[in-house]
Design a protein around this nucleic acid. Structure first.
Lengths: 265, 265
DNA sequence: GGTATTTGTTCAGTGGATTGAACAAGCGTG
DNA sequence: CACGCTTGTTCAATCCACTGAACAAATACC
């Protein structure tokens, strides 16, 4: 995806880490996750990360022993243990369990495609998905990432941040990722939407990531010191999307958000 | 879960690793994943893993910087990046995509709860789940682990291993995990089932992990050097379970297994 | 409140992980 | 086939990450 000639800054000289081997190991995992084919050789990794071959070899051996990666001939790829660990993370989120229960019972939402997502750096990451309507199946999966500016959940979570954080992430001259002709182009446009979202209490994505598809999202109020903020979204086909339906969905989404934000809802 | 007084063998003196810091970091992740609450302090980890506090501190700093863990006050827990990495692993498995498609169209399976799993050390790990029948919702999730002897998929995948591997994993005096009165108790019992499974081509789990629930499983033939073997299973309520239905489900499971084993099915 | 315990951070010395060069083995090319 | 090129492993010297003890700060206990 990125220019494979450019060595990463993950390591090398730049940042000094209290445990360099760990930082480099994490960089290896990242590189494998981002590699289009998912497989890289020792030399690939050594070159791309700027780590000497002999060191890379040691890292890979240790990672393999921990089953965080797998070797297949000369190729390395991510290991199954990562699925375990990711699942362990998700299993601790009570919100996910309640999310499913609520969706099943909600009059309108129960027939729609609903997702719960979390902010993660400059992206959002989908944590769970409820599919009431098998007619519209999303291609995105649990764990997938999405730029903030391209999704309703991203925008609604962005709107919850402080202004100076937003300014830092999206300076006026930043170039936003574009996926459709309707994707937001400028930081100014994004920021004006943020203001509107704060007033409305929900965000709308109108074919900005996929043509023909619209999305509504609301934030989950963070109750106390309980980690990063969550967001909820409904996805629908633009063709079958009406104002009244939207109002109903937003109403139910807000109910769900409220019950997630206040335990024992 | 385990005796928290017992320090782990993950590190300490035993095995020398080519990159100890990485091995220890992996041990930290494991410890966090297995901790009942999912949160541990620096001292907890230092004590449990037998790593000096100062070293543990460095490890945690590096892990946090890589977002593999999160700090919340004095408590550390798994980080969101692990969900990303786990998802990246799953997204590379074409089998999962095809699994969903097939289940939707299969006459019998489309109404059942079907799962695809993979062998992972001495456990199986669930990779994906199709739920045609919201009536019976499983509590287990993607990424969850299960002992081999307690699940139909586990037994069917075990049956695919060589005899000496089985003997190594289950010596005659081994104590099997028990979850219900019907769980297998002895290695001998397990091995005799393995022989039967090899003849039949499928495995049955009869309330061995959950009372009232039965499970059927078939192996996915491994096509070439493509990693570890997969297995498929259907879960049903014992109350509504008939011989004819079982025959149909095994038939469709085998079709699915065949199409997963032979690309372009 | 005073004591005792535990928790997390700081820091200089040292032992072992890291490294680069040299090696052998594989791969494509002319 | 001989040649260059790349790949992954080996190994001794060096440097730096790890350590343990000593510190400060918070918590538990009586």
């Amino acid at each position: 995806m990125a220019d494979s000639r450019t060595p990463r800054s993950a390591d090398g000289l730049g940042s000094s880490s209290p445990a360099p081997a760990v930082t480099r190991a994490a960089a290896v995992l990242d590189a494998l996750a981002e590699a289009p084919s998912g497989r890289l050789t020792l030399s690939d990794l050594s070159r791309e990360l700027g780590i000497p071959k002999s060191s890379t070899s040691n890292l890979l051996l240790a990672l393999e022993e921990a089953r965080l990666i797998t070797r297949e001939g000369a190729d390395f790829s991510l290991g199954r243990k990562l699925v375990e660990l990711g699942a362990a993370y998700l299993s601790r989120l009570d919100e996910v369990q309640e999310f499913y229960k609520f969706c099943e019972q909600a009059p309108t939402l129960s027939g729609e495609t609903v997702r719960i997502a979390m902010i993660d750096g400059d992206h959002i990451i989908y944590l769970a998905r409820y599919e009431g309507h098998p007619a519209v199946r999303l291609t995105s999966n649990i764990g997938d990432k999405m730029p903030l500016s391209l999704s309703a959940v991203g925008k609604v979570l962005l709107a919850q941040l402080h202004d100076h954080d937003i300014e830092e992430m999206f300076p006026d001259d930043v170039e936003l990722p574009v996926m459709t002709p309707k994707s937001l182009r400028s930081a100014a446009e994004l920021k004006s939407q943020v203001l509107a979202i704060r007033k409305q209490g929900y965000a709308l994505e109108d074919e900005e990531s996929t043509l023909g598809v619209v999305c509504l999202a609301v934030p989950v109020p963070t109750h106390g010191a309980h980690g990063p903020s969550l967001g909820l979204s409904v996805t629908a086909l633009k063709a079958t999307f009406s104002e009244e339906q939207a109002a109903l969905m937003v109403k139910e989404l807000k109910e769900l958000a409220h019950s997630l934000g206040n335990p024992m809802g």
